[in-house]
Design a protein around this nucleic acid. Sequence first.
DNA 1: GCGGCTGGAACTGGATACAGTATTCGACAC
DNA 2: GTGTCGAATACTGTATCCAGTTCCAGCCGC
Lengths: 219, 219
Amino acid sequence: MPDNDTSRRESIRERIYADLRRRVRRCEFAAEDRLVDVEIARAYGASRMPAREALLQLVNDGYLVGTSRGFALPTLSLQEVRDVFEVRKLLEPRAAALAAANLDEASEGALDGALAEAHAATRADDVARLIRANVDFRDAWVARVRNARLAETLARFVDHVQTVRREMLGCETTRLVVLEGLEDVRAAFATRDPIVAGDRMASFITCAERAFFSARRSA
Amino acid sequence: MPDNDTSRRESIRERIYADLRRRVRRCEFAAEDRLVDVEIARAYGASRMPAREALLQLVNDGYLVGTSRGFALPTLSLQEVRDVFEVRKLLEPRAAALAAANLDEASEGALDGALAEAHAATRADDVARLIRANVDFRDAWVARVRNARLAETLARFVDHVQTVRREMLGCETTRLVVLEGLEDVRAAFATRDPIVAGDRMASFITCAERAFFSARRSA
DNA sequence: GCGGCTGGAACTGGATACAGTATTCGACAC
DNA sequence: GTGTCGAATACTGTATCCAGTTCCAGCCGC
């Protein structure tokens, strides 16, 4: 999501917020990590206040939860994961349809790049890299959704289920489901057909959801 | 939206945030009003910091925008209003369907109460009261949506178009569309049938959207 | 050795202070 | 009277400090 505020130079708080969010989205933190404002402030060469405000903003977004001892990644119950999937099924097919009608050469290139990177990461068995490729793939097509509100809402929702992303891409079997799904979605976007893209996205989400819960059950 | 955090007593920031949001939702501020942290802090008997944090939180939620001179209600372009309606059309019918399957006596009572209040406000030609009744009606059924994430997202989206709400309930002709729509939706909820409720909600949103844009064009 | 108490450390929440910037208003020139 | 420049003002953003709370570890009683 590009910064829509070009005029004013970004404040320290905004810089910290953007960077932390990027890192959370890329699963750079573990579930047991504790983000503490003083440490973050020190890392960015600022005082506690902007760091604290950035963390509170991330809590408000649902990216983190505040505990009595530092800020941490939220742990989602199965019901919450189900809820998120339900909302995704409502929003993403339409978003994909809008994006398909609005793709350009550059975005298709970005999609292909992310897909190639995902395969390379899989061959190299590098989960972190695979996660990054996954995020990049999403960003590439979401950027072409004209409806900014829809795009933003969608991005937040997907990012909230970090545990799901990490789990799915870390596990051998579910990883294949995701990779296949990405290929499918990529092919659908190639047609530039909103109907095809929407349908394919819907089935992708359904497959991913099924794979996730079946993997959870067997574990 | 009930406070899901029962254990910890609420902080000053949370108190200010909740109260300001309630007031924004009820259209208690005009478009030209400027919310300034020092004034708010004084009003709540606190220092600038919690007030400022609450305001930033509201900005992050989309309820306000920060300007160089105080915080203000956002002014939405026609395209943004269209975008919001598009997302609402994706989410609300499903939400209404879920709520319909989960209604109880108390919520139906609340719906009836809000509806009666809306009619009374209309007779008294009290727009502020009508807006409150409208918000109460929404809150009553949204509270019965089991999917908390869906409910929260929905609430935010609707609240973002305060200008729309105010405009529609302030204008004679569109007001009638809303009142009729509320009656319709109420009747649909009475059936407790998810299909009926979803369909009726979808047509309500469509009607409201059409009425809004047609009123705008003629003005 | 084991469970409850106590002190301290670590962290959040809030207050106050200070710096930087944009807006506004007034004064002065034309 | 009008346009422009500049200073006062009012606001945001950041830093530092203080208070309160919670968690943990170490200690004492048993």
